[in-house]
């Protein structure tokens, strides 16, 4: 009886294992293809296209050195870093005080403020009205054009508010009795206790700004201001007439390898940040809020 049950369980477990491995491979194989394409040497590419396995002794990082040696690429990389760092700084400066204020349940007028905030989340007047605002503020070809309009995420604010609400009141009260004002309470008491949530929300904002490509296309027309994802898109949709392909005439690497290397370099910061992000959301602190 018990044996038959464990045997039954074992076959079931094998099935579950096979299923999970299949899912894993479906996710990993496309990335694997990109990696192989980026490192495959030109002669192999010309004779047999992109192989499934990388030739062990023949791979080359030529595509990466070529891309990193191209000034347009390094400028785009710099722009992406600036947009991300500045964006996270501005977003956090806007999010933290609002989340903190809304976490005070007894604040007179709190309901009104919640309504003002929530309405911006529920009703989106669309692209053009924001475009008119940005142009009327003369923000074209300014990083602020891609940073300010999406800088405050209502969702992130509510998650942070939930965290602040969960902090014990004793510390705040003690500080207030000592004559500290709310700014001091926030700075000296709340923020040091809130490192996990600050890191998580900061990383969410960082991911958002790093990935942004539509608003830069819209507002940053100066070639020296475009961030990495926009450049990557231009490289990916380029035909053989594009400037990125012309130095392929020196033929040390293929266009396909350059494209794949571009994809990997754009992914890299996310891959490096990822273990940090992952650590916090698997803990479950965000689970209640992850409805999007």
């Amino acid at each position: 009886m018990l044996q038959s049950k464990t045997r039954d369980g074992r076959w079931f477990q094998i099935g579950v294992g096979i299923f999970l491995t299949t899912v894993l491979l479906i996710i990993l194989i496309p990335f694997w293809r990109v990696i192989v394409t980026a490192f495959v040497p030109l002669d192999t590419y010309i004779t047999e296209g992109v192989p499934f396995f990388l030739p062990l002794k023949k791979w080359t990082a030529e595509a990466f050195t070529q891309l990193m040696g191209h000034t347009q690429f390094t400028i785009a990389l710099r722009n992406s870093v600036i947009i991300t760092v500045l964006g996270v700084a501005i977003s956090m400066t806007l999010t933290i005080p609002l989340a903190y204020g809304l976490s005070a349940r007894n604040l007179p007028g709190r309901k009104l403020i919640v309504a003002i905030v929530l309405f911006t989340y529920l009703f989106n007047p669309g692209l053009i009205p924001v475009y008119l605002l940005v142009t009327s503020l003369k923000l074209q070809n300014n990083f602020l054009a891609v940073i300010l309009p999406p800088a405050l995420s209502v969702f992130n604010t509510l998650v942070m508010m939930g965290f602040f609400e969960g902090l014990p009141d004793d510390f705040k009260e003690a500080a207030r009795l000592d004559g500290a004002n709310e700014l001091q309470v926030l700075w000296h008491v709340i923020l040091p206790l809130s490192k996990p949530i600050l890191l998580t929300i900061g990383l969410f904002y960082a991911v958002f700004f790093w990935n942004e490509f539509f608003t830069p296309i819209l507002y940053l027309n100066d070639g020296n201001l475009i961030p990495l994802p926009v450049l990557l898109r231009n490289i990916l949709i380029s035909s053989s007439l594009n400037e990125f392909v012309e130095y392929n005439a020196f033929s040390t690497t293929s266009v396909e390898s350059l494209k794949a290397a571009g994809v990997l370099i754009t992914m890299l910061p996310m891959l490096l940040l990822y273990p940090w992000i992952q650590r916090y959301f698997t803990k479950g602190s965000l689970v209640g809020g992850v409805k999007e």
């Binding site: 496309p30 990109v34 990916l236 996310m270 959301f281």
Partner: peptide, 21 residues
């Protein structure tokens, strides 16, 4: 860990990944 990852990548990167397939 692996299956959460694509959520954090932009559609431009996804475009490159899709092209490889």
């Amino acid at each position: 860990t692996v299956i959460y990852l694509p959520h954090f990548l932009s559609w431009v990167i996804m475009f490159g990944v899709l092209l490889s397939i």
